[in-house]
């Protein structure tokens, strides 16, 4: 199996797949808001609203705190770039993605960690109490979420005998519909982690404007203009990335093996459908759940960690022979 038959197609694949996710990310957020509004008997904003917000922010002047260092201005670009590179290692439509060899699943988590590291530093940079508060809380959440995420990847990598995302997807596709207990545990853990990592209810409220309850918004409080636009877009991309990760690892059916146009169109349709369902589920969960107190969050994420560990152990105990 030679992956390097057609360099141009591969380069295009590596270039277009992340850009597609980037372009679709605001739409996913709009879709979640729309479903949530409908569930709450509101009409909700049109689906293009996040794009309009981004355009508006890009055109506005940027206000930078006098107390901030140069890192504050560099951070939005780096956070955005790191998140986009992370998204670039994820097969969306076609499994033939050369960038899966550049960074495997562990490096993907590492790149998200890089984005978070810079985001948290940016939160601390202006020297305001809210930035510090958001930074401290973000590190609390990530301390528990990141190991759980790694364990989920380990569980699947032990089955696939590879940490390469394309190989992992291929293994799941080859195995067909097999009910593995380890996958069920891992899926549950990944759902909890995704909610925490993307700052959704019940861990963080993306719609809040009360400074004391903010985590993600607290760190962004000093940002405005194009800096804020990049940070917001990166956060939307991260949400789409996690949804795509769940789809890739657990429900990859429909993804194209090569570059045949028909298969690609089917893959795009399947992906849109799956992301739409996941988004609707998130909207439903956010409607029926309330935000937790901060110190309930470690318990929530410990559950994710334990589920992932159970997945790993059940793989070792029950499935290792296969």
């Amino acid at each position: 199996m030679d992956h390097f038959l057609n360099p141009l197609a591969h380069a295009l694949s590596a270039l277009l797949q992340p850009l597609l996710l980037l372009a679709a990310a605001p739409l996913l957020v709009a879709w979640i808001r729309r479903v949530k509004a409908r569930l709450q008997n509101r009409r909700g904003a049109p689906l293009l609203q996040p794009y309009r917000d981004l355009r508006k922010l890009f055109a506005k002047e940027a206000v930078v705190a006098r107390t901030a260092s140069p890192l504050f201005r560099a951070a939005p670009y780096l956070v955005f770039a790191a998140t986009l590179v992370a998204a670039g290692t994820l097969p969306l439509l076609s499994l033939r993605l050369p960038s899966t060899a550049v960074a495997d699943a562990i490096a993907l988590i590492g790149l998200l960690g890089l984005a978070r590291f810079l985001l948290v530093l940016a939160g601390l940079d202006a020297g305001t109490p809210f930035g510090g508060m958001g930074a401290s809380r973000e590190m609390l959440v990530s301390t528990f979420a990141e190991p759980a995420l790694l364990l989920v990847v380990f569980t699947l990598a032990m089955t696939a005998h590879s940490t390469n995302l394309a190989s992992m997807v291929q293994t799941t596709l080859n195995a067909g519909l097999v009910l593995r207990p380890s996958y069920l545990f891992a899926l549950a853990a990944l759902l909890l982690v995704a909610i925490a990592e993307c700052g959704r209810i019940p861990v963080d409220n993306p719609a809040t404007h009360l400074e004391l309850t903010m985590i993600h918004e607290g760190m962004l409080l000093e940002y405005s203009g194009r800096h804020l636009a990049l940070m917001e877009w990166a956060a939307q991309l991260k949400l789409a990335l996690f949804a795509a990760l769940i789809v890739d690892l657990f429900l990859p059916w429909g993804i194209a093996a090569g570059f045949a146009p028909g298969a690609l169109a089917r893959a795009a349709l399947a992906l849109a459908l799956k992301l739409g369902v996941l988004g609707a589920l998130l909207a439903l969960a956010e409607t029926v759940l309330a935000k937790m107190r901060l110190f309930r969050v470690p318990g929530f994420l410990n559950l994710a960690f334990l589920l992932a560990l159970l997945g790993l152990l059940s793989h070792v105990i029950l499935e290792a022979a296969t």
């Binding site: 890009f58 002047e61 940027a62 930078v64 006098r66 409080l221 990049l230």
Partner: peptide, 20 residues
């Protein structure tokens, strides 16, 4: 990105006190 989003007359960068 830095090049594409460089400060312009319509969208300059302004220094101000942090939010209080």
């Amino acid at each position: 990105l830095v090049w594409a989003l460089r400060p312009s007359r319509q969208a300059p960068v302004r220094r101000a006190d942090p939010w209080d």
